[in-house]
Amino acid sequence: MTNPTQMPSRTTARMTGPSHQPPGGAPSAPSAPHAPGALPPRPGVGLKPQHYAEILATRPDIGFFEVHAENYMGAGGPPHRYLAAIAEAYPLSLHGVGLSIGADRPLDRDHLNRLAALIRRYRPASFSEHLAWSTHDSGFLNDLLPLPYTDATLARVAAHVDEVQDRLGCRMLLENPTSYLRFVESTWDEVAFLAEVARRTGCGLLLDVNNVHLSAVNLGFDARAYLGRFPMEAVGEIHLAGFAPETDEAGRPLLIDTHDRPVDAKVWALYAYALERAGARPTLIEWDEGVPDWSVLMAEAARAGRLLAARAGADAGKAGGKSGERGTRDAALC
């Protein structure tokens, strides 16, 4: 049996600190950020400290940047200095990992307040979180933990999404999870569960195509059929990422959501199908571990860009450059 400490793992929020200082000086203390708008239907990448300086120096042609909200909840210092400088030039997607929307217990008021403050400060074009839980009596369990899909949990999740949208004053996107096992008591299928949450609350959905592939392999369902039923009209963003293939004790494939390598060919194919059904959507390359050189990350984004352009067709003219054009201002987003 594999030593658990050697198993690949997924990361959620990362530590940022002085040991991650990029070379060269940070910008001066931040001023007012750029005005908000919808995410453009173009490729985006996660904003990583390793790339801060290069992004500011080269002003790459990328559609948007996404950050983990929890990494920008300090008071000051390089994280905010860099984020403010970059947010002046690019649309921003704020992606939370710690709100624990799927939990049995109330949402953390202090955390909602911190999120509200971040949204006020940076006016992101999108706010998203996960269909998962992480809060527990013993403390915060920093992973995205699964929940059963029942009438009771559906009501709980919808209530939490309502509360989030009310408190933050904007529509949120809810992301589908990667599953490694399922709860025997589930009575709802995941697509129907997400669709019903969106219907009841008016929230949007963040379609993580990599998570669909992983869950399909791990639980034994058809990923393409899942995408075929997915309510694409609610999709405000798509995520793509890499995974680590492992096996379970019976030798069946067990794919781990590691976000540490290029997007798999099967996931690119599912993404093309998703675009066929949905049309062009803002698409994030989610590479959080073993972060590569900037040029490698841009190459992944460019590949998504080619698929978006191929699908968009007539829409390609509306997808503007990195600054100035922001896409239409959508009242449903932050």
Binding site: T11, Y180, L181, N218, G220
Partner: peptide
């Protein structure tokens, strides 16, 4: 897991994610 049987290995993924994180 997919065969309807419990799987310690699959639960271990979550354990490892928390510890490794």
């Amino acid at each position: 897991g997919p065969d309807g049987q419990p799987s310690a290995r699959r639960f271990a993924v979550y354990r490892n994610n928390v510890a490794a994180g």
